[in-house]
Simulated scan of single mutants.
Amino acid sequence: MKKIKIYLDYKCFPIWIYNDKGELIGNDLPKELADDKQADEVFVKIQNIYDNLFINDLIEFKYIGFSSEIDREGYLKMIDDAVKLLKIKLGDLYVIEEKIEV
């Protein structure tokens, strides 16, 4: 069965799509949601927040994290809600896994 992994990586869209052989076939919304503005907006927001947890300039690249535990918890809830949205919109078409570390 096809699989979607929700995985955060700097400057990469948080959805990773795998075929039924386990091979990576995309790093974007699945084709079934290509025109879904709601899903696109929420995952772009998730990625933008994640990218802003890092300093990346000509001198250094490092993780700085959230300014508070409340911000971190709100972000994790946003991800949980986004995953629920995917499950509702995609039904049984994909197995959805999360690997979130922040």
Rank of each mutant, 00 (worst) to 15 (best):
L29T: 01
V44K: 11
I59R: 08
N48W: 09
V83G: 03
N52R: 12
K31N: 15
F61T: 06
F61V: 07
I25G: 13
E41G: 12
Y75K: 03
Y94S: 07
I70R: 08
L86E: 02
Y50F: 15
L85A: 09
I17L: 14
G22S: 13
F54Y: 13
S67G: 03
N52P: 01
I17D: 01
L58A: 12
E32H: 14
E73C: 03
I46V: 03
I25M: 14
V42N: 02
I88R: 14
N48H: 11
D35V: 13
N19T: 13
I64K: 09
A39V: 02
P30F: 05
A82E: 00
I70P: 00
D51Q: 06
E73V: 08
E69F: 06
I25E: 11
Y50E: 08
E32D: 14
I49G: 01
G65H: 01
I70M: 07
I15R: 00
E60Y: 09
G74Q: 11
D20R: 09
Y63E: 03
K31S: 10
Y50M: 04
G74I: 03
K84C: 11
K21N: 14
I70G: 05
W16G: 01
Y63S: 02
K87F: 10
D20Q: 15
V42H: 01
N52S: 14
Y18P: 03
F66P: 01
I88L: 10
Q38C: 13
K31H: 15
A39G: 03
D81S: 07
E23V: 12
Y75F: 06
Y50P: 00
L93M: 15
L93H: 12
Y75L: 05
D81V: 04
R72I: 01
Q47E: 09
E23M: 12
G22T: 11
N19K: 15
F61R: 04
E60T: 07
K89A: 08
N56E: 05
K31M: 15
Y18F: 14
I88M: 15
I25D: 15
E32M: 10
V83F: 04
L90V: 13
D57C: 11
L93V: 14
M78S: 05
D71C: 11
L76C: 06
K89Q: 10
G65K: 01
I46E: 00
Q47P: 00
E73F: 06
D80I: 02
S67C: 05
E32T: 10
K87D: 13
L76W: 04
L24P: 03
A82Q: 00
D20M: 11
A82Y: 00
D57S: 13
G91A: 14
L85S: 06
Q47F: 02
I17M: 12
I17R: 02
L85K: 02
Q38V: 08
N48D: 12
Y94H: 10
D51Y: 04
I88Y: 15
L58D: 09
I49D: 02
V42F: 04
K37N: 13
K62L: 02
E23P: 06
